[in-house]
Amino acid sequence: MITAENLQIELAHCHCSETHYKHWLGILYTEGIRTLAMKGECYWLLDAVASHQPGKAIKSNPNLQDFQLWMLTVNDDHSAVLACYEDSPSTCAPVITQDIPSTDFPLSEIKLYVEYGVLLLPSEH
């Protein structure tokens, strides 16, 4: 398993992705997300975000059609919460929350975006 520091170093190189990959649930994702999933051993995180895309919470909310901010927050006991926001977490409540009972994800927190159906790192925006 990669350390938090080494994962941050790997992700720091991810900018302006030109290649998109297709997740088996239909969402597209960037090279940076692929790096995150491979190095962080967290394909489950892609699965979680992708699984919410066809749901009513997203489909019925026009504000989430073009942009979603997803935040994974890992707790000291290795549980986590995955939350989806219309905008900054400081300005609005989450539209979706999913409890993750246990994870070995190396970072204490990560933000991801979904823009027009493509999952990407903020540095790739």
Rank of each mutant, 00 (worst) to 15 (best):
P106A: 09
C14H: 00
Q53R: 08
N61Q: 08
P54N: 05
T30N: 07
T35M: 13
L11A: 09
H20C: 13
A80M: 08
L36M: 05
V118S: 13
A48N: 01
L46P: 01
M71S: 11
L112C: 07
V118A: 14
H13E: 12
W44H: 00
M71N: 10
S102M: 05
Q68P: 06
Y116F: 11
A4S: 09
T30M: 08
V74S: 10
C92V: 14
L64G: 12
P101G: 06
M71G: 02
H23S: 11
T97M: 03
T73W: 10
S102V: 02
L121A: 11
K111L: 06
G26P: 07
T3V: 09
P101A: 08
D77S: 05
L25Q: 14
L7T: 12
T103W: 05
I33T: 12
M71E: 14
I96C: 07
R34I: 01
A83T: 06
E5T: 11
T35A: 15
N6Q: 07
V74A: 10
N6D: 09
Q68V: 05
L107H: 04
Y113D: 03
C16S: 11
L7W: 12
A50W: 06
E124G: 13
N75V: 00
W24A: 13
F105T: 10
M38R: 14
P62N: 03
L72W: 04
V74R: 15
N61P: 06
Q8I: 11
L64M: 15
K22V: 13
V74F: 14
S108I: 05
P54M: 02
V49R: 01
G117N: 04
L119V: 15
W24N: 12
L25R: 14
R34V: 00
E41Q: 10
W44S: 00
I9M: 14
T97N: 00
I100G: 00
V74K: 15
T91C: 09
C84F: 12
D104M: 01
L82E: 02
E109K: 09
I27D: 07
P54H: 03
F67T: 04
T91S: 13
T97F: 00
C16E: 11
D47L: 01
E109L: 05
A83M: 09
H78G: 00
P89V: 02
K22H: 12
Y113C: 06
T30C: 06
A83W: 02
M71D: 06
Q68S: 09
L45V: 06
L45M: 08
A57F: 03
E5S: 09
Y43C: 01
V95L: 13
Q8T: 12
G40I: 04
G117K: 06
M1Q: 08
A12H: 13
S51W: 08
Y21R: 04
M1D: 03
K22A: 13
T19H: 14
V81H: 03
E115R: 15
I2Y: 10
F105Q: 05
A83I: 00
E18R: 14
L107E: 06
C84Q: 11
N75I: 00
W70I: 00
I110Y: 01
T91F: 14
S79N: 02
T3Q: 10
L45K: 05
D104W: 01
Y21I: 02
P122M: 04
Q98T: 08
A93V: 08
C42L: 03
L82K: 03
V49D: 04
Y29T: 07
H78K: 14
D87S: 12
T103S: 05
E31S: 15
A37I: 01
V49E: 03
A12L: 12
